[in-house]
Design a protein around this nucleic acid. Structure first.
Lengths: 212, 212
DNA sequence: GACCAGATTTGACCGTGGTCATTTAACCGC
DNA sequence: GCGGTTAAATGACCACGGTCAAATCTGGTC
């Protein structure tokens, strides 16, 4: 994977990626067309598919690259020491994932590994994210009756669900952080949760329940 | 919705649905082709799209119908009185969702409402499912420091994540129920989990931790 | 039963992702 | 440089979801 090919091939691949980035900057991920990329790169259509098994794999790579950049920041950052700090620290990564509905869908589909010995770039990035979160969660205020790993996976489960809701017109008057908070509080600080009765701790979906 | 059309139209629609069911029985959801449905129904292609905005909406309806049937059973069933009963009771609904990867993807994309005042059939079915789960969770052994609704939504978040993992070749030596259990235990019974410091009963839990 | 307005159906057509046999370029030993 | 072998690129072609102006049917009115 490191040295897959001759120089010409690498150049072509880079041209394709650059062209795709340009197109995405102009049209967004959703509006990306293989024909447009290929035209901009000055290359035949078949060439595209010689380099990327399908369109989604290219997109996955581009999203993963953005995520990796954010991960680098997260890994360097000091661990947060309370729930709100935790949420704030992860917010940039989460906003990245919710920029575009299309992007979120790709992530939802690929954030778990999809084939034996064949973790896609997004799945790999998510493993790294789990590591960061696990690490942060091992510390002081958070529950310890359960492995950090399990805790981290739970955080992702709630995050994905809240993000999905973010795209639902019925519920989007409330921000991601606000939506996510009650879940994480109940998940990460189960003993504290009983103490407060402030604010509507109803689930984010209750708005929909009303409407139904 | 009740009286959408003249009789001819309703007949055509039913023929399309029946044809689609036949095709799905033969080819699975993934293999469904609009052309095949239309041919089998003896109808022109345009007619299909006069009845269903797109292919996915038909599929959504068919999946929702199966889910509704299961919901009827769930609503009639007695509430489970412990965690394993809870999991066992919901298992049929969850297996329904994991029959086919394609089906799961559609569910993941449509289980939350997608447009104002326009809950799709799947979103509606999921509201019903939340109601059932909320109801079951209000009872005895489960935590009460948090609303039933929030608890129910959390259950779905974990269920969806575990299902996604179910399709990941790297992790599929472990069944859905076994994968899900440690999450639900930690989510629904946080105090029981906290009771034991060295966590001797977390056998299933550590399996999930290991999987990483 | 002749007529009409609106609902329904039709099928040729299009956009777009993806395939593959063929052609062209790169590398290597001589 | 010169054949020859493998890697890379090409573009005509296909599959499939979806569109739309035109044709056809239906139920109601006189």
């Amino acid at each position: 994977m490191s040295q897959p090919a001759q120089a010409r091939s690498r150049r072509t691949r880079n041209r394709l990626i650059a062209a795709a980035e340009d197109e995405i900057a102009a049209q967004g991920f959703e509006g990306l067309r293989v024909d447009a990329v290929v035209r901009r790169a000055g290359v035949a259509k078949g060439t595209f598919f010689a380099h990327f098994a399908d369109k989604e794999i290219l997109i996955e790579e581009l999203i993963a690259a953005r995520l990796e950049a954010e991960l680098q920041r997260l890994e360097a950052a000091p661990p947060p020491h309370d729930l709100d700090g935790f949420i704030a620290a992860l917010m940039p990564a989460w906003s990245l994932m919710t920029q575009e509905r299309y992007v979120f869908d790709v992530i939802a589909r690929h954030s778990t590994a999809m084939g034996i010995a064949n973790l896609g770039p997004l799945a790999i990035a998510f493993q790294r994210l789990y590591d960061v979160i696990s690490d942060w969660l091992s510390g002081a205020p958070f529950r310890t009756d359960v492995t950090r790993r399990l805790l981290a996976e739970g955080v992702q489960a709630f995050a994905l669900q809240s993000m999905a809701l973010e795209f639902c017109a019925l519920h989007n008057q409330i921000g991601l952080a606000a939506r996510l908070r009650p879940y994480l509080r109940a998940w990460l600080l189960p003993n504290h949760a009983a103490g407060t009765k402030k604010a509507p701790e109803t689930g984010a979906l209750s708005v929909a329940a009303e409407a139904a």
